[in-house]
Amino acid sequence: MPRYEYRCRSCGDTFELSRPMSESAAPAQCPAGHADTVKLLSTVAVGGSGPSSASAPQGGGGCCGGGCCG
C-alpha cells in the first residue's frame, strides 16, 4: 500500500499515512488532531537493472542529444 506524506498547517508536524491510491486525495488528520493538512509531493527513486545514464550511448535518443530542442 502506498505511503503518503502530509504536513499540518496548524502545528507544522510532518507525518505519513499508508492508504490505498483511491484515497490519496482524501483529507488527512494530523496525529495531534488538526484537520488543516496538506499532502506533500514526494520524489521516489526506483532502481532497475537497465543501463545507467553513465553507460548510455551519447548523442542519440535524448531530447537535446536527438536534436528536438531549438
Rank of each mutant, 00 (worst) to 15 (best):
A25W: 07
H34M: 06
S53C: 09
R7T: 11
G33C: 06
C8I: 04
T14D: 05
S52I: 05
V38M: 13
C30H: 04
A28H: 03
A26L: 10
A45F: 14
Q58D: 04
R19E: 05
H34K: 07
P31V: 05
T14K: 13
A32N: 15
D13G: 03
R9A: 09
P2A: 11
S10R: 09
P2E: 05
V38W: 04
P57A: 15
C8E: 02
S10H: 08
C69Q: 14
G33R: 07
A54K: 14
Y4A: 07
A32G: 08
G33D: 06
C11Q: 06
G47Y: 02
G67I: 00
G47M: 05
K39C: 15
F15M: 08
G59R: 02
Y4F: 15
V46Q: 03
A56T: 07
R7S: 08
V38R: 13
G48C: 01
G59M: 03
G59T: 00
G12Q: 11
L17C: 05
G47W: 01
G67W: 00
T43W: 10
D13V: 14
R9F: 09
C11W: 07
G47V: 10
R7L: 05
A56I: 07
G61A: 09
G12S: 15
S22T: 14
V38Q: 14
S24L: 07
G67F: 01
Y6R: 06
M1N: 12
E5K: 11
A54Q: 13
A45L: 14
G67A: 03
E5C: 05
A26Q: 08
D36R: 00
F15G: 06
D36M: 02
R3N: 08
G65Q: 13
G12C: 10
G61C: 07
S10P: 00
S22M: 10
G12R: 05
P31Q: 01
M21W: 07
C68T: 06
G65C: 15
S24K: 15
A26S: 09
C68L: 11
C64E: 13
K39D: 02
S42F: 06
G47H: 01
Q58C: 02
V38S: 13
E5L: 12
